[in-house]
Simulated scan of single mutants.
Amino acid sequence: MADPNKVYPTGLTLAEAEELHGHVIFGARVFAAIAVVAHILAYLFTPWLH
């Protein structure tokens, strides 16, 4: 029978899955912050967007 501590279908425990999810969310936030800065810089330094 399947281990009740594992999260289907990954085989991770709930604590492992939550830790991995935290890393994914942090990475998405870092990516979004870099994208926002890049868009601001593109707007400021591209004369035809003004």
Rank of each mutant, 00 (worst) to 15 (best):
M1E: 15
M1D: 15
A2L: 11
A2D: 12
A2R: 15
D3H: 07
D3F: 05
D3C: 08
P4K: 11
P4V: 09
P4R: 15
N5M: 11
K6C: 06
K6E: 12
V7R: 09
V7F: 04
Y8K: 09
P9Y: 04
P9K: 09
T10G: 08
G11D: 02
L12S: 04
L12Q: 07
L12C: 04
L12I: 00
L12V: 00
T13L: 07
T13F: 05
T13H: 07
L14H: 13
A15G: 10
A15T: 11
A17F: 13
A17C: 13
E18P: 03
E18Y: 10
E18S: 11
E19S: 14
E19M: 10
E19D: 14
L20W: 10
L20S: 07
H21I: 01
H23P: 02
V24P: 02
I25E: 10
I25M: 14
F26R: 14
F26C: 11
A28F: 05
V30E: 05
V30K: 04
F31P: 00
F31I: 05
F31C: 07
A33V: 03
I34S: 06
I34T: 09
I34D: 02
A35Q: 05
A35N: 00
V36M: 04
V37Y: 00
V37Q: 00
A38W: 03
H39C: 03
L41M: 14
L41S: 06
A42K: 11
A42R: 12
A42V: 12
A42F: 07
A42Q: 09
Y43W: 10
L44I: 09
L44F: 10
L44T: 09
F45T: 14
T46N: 02
W48V: 10
W48L: 05
W48R: 03
